[in-house]
């Protein structure tokens, strides 16, 4: 993509649309990746409550996985899980 020059962009770092943080995939900052043991999960949603990046995917009352576009691998979900069904593993890149 050709980048624009200083005369062709709005001043002050303004972007002329909202919700732009969504386009910046922070998941690539990750070193550790959460891995879930499906057999142990009780769908209590405590990980969903605590995840600071809203990366716990939920469907029909079930915890269905992680949004890896934004998960930074902080490990909070693994730490708060009452049944210890989430483990943090070194991600292979």
């Amino acid at each position: 993509m050709t980048k624009k020059g200083w005369k062709d962009i709005p001043i002050g770092g303004l972007i002329e649309k909202g919700g732009t943080a969504k386009e910046y995939k922070t998941g690539d900052w990750r070193t550790f990746i959460p891995v879930k043991d499906e057999a142990k999960c009780i769908d209590c949603m405590i990980c969903w409550v605590y995840c600071p990046d809203s990366c716990i995917k939920v469907k029909d009352g079930k915890m269905t996985g992680f949004d890896l576009d934004y998960c930074k691998g902080c490990g909070i979900c693994a730490s708060v899980c009452p049944v210890k069904c989430i483990s943090m593993e070194k991600e292979k890149k």
């Binding site: 303004l14 649309k17 919700g19």
Partner: peptide, 18 residues
Amino acid sequence: VTVGPLDLQDYYFEHKRQ
């Protein structure tokens, strides 16, 4: 609009030039 976004090697310099 988006105000105060992350602005790294690609555009920060252009904003300072402005």
